[in-house]
Amino acid sequence: MTRPNFITLTDEQVRARKRRNVAIAMGLVGFIVLVFVVTVTNLQRNTEARKAAEAAAVGTVLQADPALPAPAAAPMSEPTP
């Protein structure tokens, strides 16, 4: 059985690899944080838009003539700007 021919890294190569690994880790953490922030912000905006739409729909129903047919369902959220 032949032994694999491993490469012995120089100190410079090890240091460079370590710095690259730290940069990749920071990049990945940054990306995860960004996705989290975007998700929470969009959820918040959509929830607020839905509440506003529901409030507007309730107001429309209260002001409407009972003899008229009910208004159409309100949109789930405001169009994304």
Partner: peptide
């Protein structure tokens, strides 16, 4: 090169 010595600044 078989093993790179590229730094993060190079990628930037």
């Amino acid at each position: 090169p078989l093993v790179t010595t590229a730094q993060p600044e190079d990628f930037f």
